[in-house]
Amino acid sequence: MLEIKNLHANVDGREILKGLDLTLPTGEVHAIMGPNGSGKSTLAYVLAGKEDYEVTEGSITWNGKDLLDLDPSARAATGVFLAFQYPMEIPGVATMTFLRSAVNAVRKARGEDELSTPDFMRLVKEKAKGLKIDAEMLRRPLNVGFSGGEKKRNEILQMALLEPSLCVLDETDSGLDIDALRIVADGVNALRSKERSMLVITHYQRLLDYIVPDKVHVLSKGRVARSGGPELALELEKTGYAEFGGEATAA
């Protein structure tokens, strides 16, 4: 279970998260919505442990463990995974090489043996197939020249390979065409399980048609302003964020 209590976080000396509370039970999927600039990505980065995001107050525990004590790689090892809103490019590093380094780093940290080359190749092939990622793409340098959709599918591939227990998806649906959206959603749904919790950040009800959340939270000005069932997303679709002080109308 993920428990976030009274979380305050600064970026460049400016307070962005202002007393955020959120509880995500193990095995559940919660959607996070909210106007631009409300702090959704900030929350995602704080969960993953980004350096310049300074937590000034409050706590985050994951299965009773204090997440704030851990550096980013240790968080990855305990099962935290962030699918980035804007995945980074790393020139010259073949996607396959990156995936392998990541899988083995996490396995090592978890006290497991590194995967042999054939075992790893088999695993990647299997996971990539479901996401319609071909071998050619895996040979290309990580995210370099990838289309928006390819980058997002690549994030889900990493998630599938690293088998995290806490998945944070930051606008994984933005920039996807209808077909890609379905592929990604299927990929995410395939990873839903009793042991795995997910935070799905999105602006669109459309994604939640595919990935039906257990709960929906609306973020506004760095706090959870409202929580509800899946129907809350439908309501927002009609009314927009006006009541939360956002400028955005219906998406």
Binding site: A48, G49, K50, E51, D52, D71, P72, S73, R75, A76, A77, V80, F81, L82, F84, P87, M88, E89, I90, F98, S101, A102, A105, V106, A109, Q158, L162
Partner: peptide, 13 residues
């Protein structure tokens, strides 16, 4: 820093 963080968040030291 962003490239580095991306790698760290995937478990790399």
């Amino acid at each position: 820093d962003d490239q580095l963080f991306y790698c760290l968040s995937r478990g790399l030291s």
